[in-house]
Design a protein around this nucleic acid. Structure first.
Lengths: 307, 307
DNA sequence: TTCGTTTACGAACACCGTAACTATG
DNA sequence: CATAGTTACGGTGTTCGTAAACGAA
């Protein structure tokens, strides 16, 4: 049994049983991948993949177990590499963050700035996606740290730390009747066309629930996963915007007015998630500490052990 | 990084940093092992072993981490092999038990007999040792299932199931004054030279504690880990024997009298222990069920998941 | 000196990738 | 007929083990 063979099998599964794609991703030839998989199956004396003639059409029962174990083994192997990098070049490496647009654009910049000043030799990658995508990327090991709201807390493979709470605000052109000095209510919001976050965002379902509990139906005319997109359409007069209040910048968004809506919705918590079974590089502890200052190295290790 | 290299490193550590012994155990050459370790260290760009000149004298800090991770990775690899064997030849394989003499000799035979009738193609190995050795063998993966009293419950890596409770009896030649019909007391036992289990047995410290709490000191003239050895010396008139009452067989031991001592000592529980992170073969579930009928496959899986 | 590790080197082996072939949809 | 997987085969690089050199106890 060779590590390469396990990697091949894992990649084939990730590529939906397409050997050619797997070979391409792994920068090697189809024939080699094909052959190594056969050799592995022969050595283990069972079929990992179901085949119709020459096509791979599924994973057998035993194959499923094998794949799961192979993933765990490969993860440990990757951890060995991490440890070695940690010891040989303590503060160089790669840190991949997965997060949502709003976090990346409005909440992370200061922490990222501090991070690259502190760890100038660490290359930082930011992947962007919906909270679910964020969690999946971390769970699959494609990102080291995920930052998103609520949902990522539901993933078994992830250990989550609460970072901070936030709430929502309404934005609209300055001339909008909402800015009449009267207190903001759900009913008033429901009067106007609304531009807000996509359903796939946690906030989405929470916002809907608040409205429906009040017996109201908001008139959502447009949804986006990107706060800047929302602002753009609000600017165009399509409706009023409902978004995270950290996303409103009085200077940059001087063309728009803002009124806080924290009293209308429960606060949401942004979580930071890591895989439970990865070795954390020193600078990863560093970033977590920057984003969630209550968690230092000791606290993180304790949480990892407890989980 | 190659699996072989990790195996080499692991074996060197197991062989107390002796590369030659490791090579021998692995059925390969010293030079090959040496070179592969160097290649691995080069690839990881750090030293796993401390060296004085050419001798390996220790494991570096980074090396310790690497070894721990390598062991986990290799364990997953071994689990893959187990899964494949389970699927290709469900009821053939090897089952290695680690247990104490008393269990092997008096308690296990009936279960073992049932087991080999049920799984005729499984080769059964029985390793014998003190309870601590039993637990260590299971923890190191040298045995699949350990059966011993109490202490094995303290190992973090092991998941333990209570099997059954037992207590102690006194044996002596039929003519011995202990068999006077009067009830047995600690004080009476303390009057005579005593032959009993070795200190390293859990029972040992418990027995001592009971005597000392009663303000008595037993006159232990000989200890052994083997009930048959104890009986032999009792037969020779060296003293009276204190041992597990399952170890007294009225027929076989017709030359000796027995009097129960359950009222004098707290009962001890025999546990069955398995590593938390191993894949269990079907026949392993079978043996556990034979020894601890309250644990069927579902209960065992549930306990493994909970841990 | 002895025990143990590393270096040197040739033979055997395994792997990779191109290219031709074959099966599926 | 196009797409995807397997077989064939030669070149390349790695591993293995013997033997010799070397270092520490």
């Amino acid at each position: 049994m060779k590590l390469h063979q396990l990697r091949y099998v894992r990649e084939i599964v990730r590529q939906n049983l397409n050997v050619s794609h797997a070979a391409e991703t792994l920068h090697t030839s189809q024939s080699g991948v094909s052959k190594q998989v056969q050799l592995l199956e022969e050595e283990l004396n069972l079929h990992i993949f179901e085949r119709h003639g020459k096509r791979l059409t599924g994973v057998t029962e035993s194959g499923g177990l094998i794949v799961a174990l192979a993933e765990r083994a490969l993860r440990e192997i990757e951890n060995i590499k991490r440890v070695s990098e940690e010891f040989s070049q303590k503060e160089t490496g790669i840190l991949t963050l997965a997060t949502t647009h709003t976090q990346a654009r409005y909440r992370l910049p200061s922490a990222v700035q501090a991070f690259i000043r502190r760890y100038p030799d660490v290359k930082l990658h930011i992947h962007q996606g919906t909270p679910t995508q964020v969690a999946e990327q971390v769970a699959r090991g494609e990102a080291d740290i995920g930052i998103a709201t609520e949902v990522i807390n539901g993933f078994e493979k992830l250990l989550c730390f609460p970072c901070y709470e936030w709430n929502r605000c309404i934005i609209a052109p300055h001339s909008h009747p909402l800015f009449d000095g009267e207190p903001l209510t759900l009913a008033k919001i429901a009067l106007y066309p609304l531009v807000t976050y996509d359903f796939t965002f946690t906030g989405g379902s929470l916002v809907n629930r608040v409205f429906s509990e009040a017996g109201l139906t908001p008139n959502v005319v447009l949804t986006a996963i990107d706060a800047d997109v929302i602002k753009t359409y609000v600017n165009l007069g399509l409706g009023i915007g409902l978004l995270a209040n950290i996303a409103y910048d009085p200077e940059r968004d001087s063309g728009l007015g803002m009124v806080d809506a924290s009293h209308l919705f429960p606060a949401s918590t942004t979580y930071l998630g890591i895989r439970r079974d990865t070795y954390l590089r020193g600078y990863m502890y560093g970033l977590i500490h920057l984003l969630a200052p209550q968690f230092d190295r000791k606290a993180i290790d304790a949480a990892l052990l407890a989980g």
